[in-house]
């Protein structure tokens, strides 16, 4: 099993930390993982993206141009990455702020209203965990106990009291996926 993921959006949406929590959790479940961020001037207020790979085998290139899953959180990223999803792959996006919706017919597309949901939860901070939950529902690669370990490792100890809220957000994200993707 190798899952190649791109997560892309604005700096500040929690794109890089979502990737880090995913990678850390995968590692806790004894998977090989890599996390490769876009870094540089574009991060300051602009777009941010990270490539995360989770695999049972040694990971070759951490840098990719085709992905099994794209998690897209702003219009620029939609323009850039819609066509980078492998045929039969998954595109998850939050429709807030998206003016041109994805049009591809040979991939599976899921809209997740994470921004609305996080507002309902009263915490904009868990936005990225709702999205991550949706991903984990579609690709159940990592068990809940390893997600908890990943959260414990990724968050500084002073923020460990926020873990239950993050776990709740992951569960809500899971519940927002209406149809389930079948792995061929």
């Amino acid at each position: 099993m190798t899952e190649e993921i791109i997560i892309a959006g604005f700096g500040g949406q929690g794109v890089l930390s979502m990737g880090k929590i995913l990678a850390y959790s995968g590692m806790m479940q004894n998977k090989e993982v890599s996390w490769f961020p876009s870094y540089g001037p574009e991060m300051r207020g602009g777009t941010a993206n990270v490539t995360v790979i989770i695999s049972d085998e040694r990971i070759s290139s951490p840098i990719l141009n085709w992905f099994d899953t794209a998690i897209i959180l702003n219009q620029q990223s939609m323009d850039k990455f819609e066509n980078s999803v492998k045929k039969g792959g998954i595109l998850i996006y939050d429709p807030n702020g998206i003016t041109r919706h994805p049009v591809r017919t040979n991939i599976n597309i899921y809209t997740i209203n994470a921004a609305d949901e996080s507002a309902r939860m009263g915490s904009a901070k868990v936005f990225n965990m709702i999205i991550l939950g949706a991903f984990l529902k579609l690709k159940p690669l990592i068990g809940a106990e390893y997600m908890r370990k990943g959260l414990e490792k990724s968050l500084p100890a002073r923020h460990h009291d926020m873990i239950p809220e993050n776990e709740k957000a992951i569960d809500i994200g899971k519940s927002l996926v209406k149809q389930t993707y079948t792995l061929n």
Partner: peptide, 10 residues
């Protein structure tokens, strides 16, 4: 290089 410096792995 910048890629190896900035990426995270186990």
């Amino acid at each position: 290089d910048g890629a190896i410096g900035q990426m995270m792995e186990k």
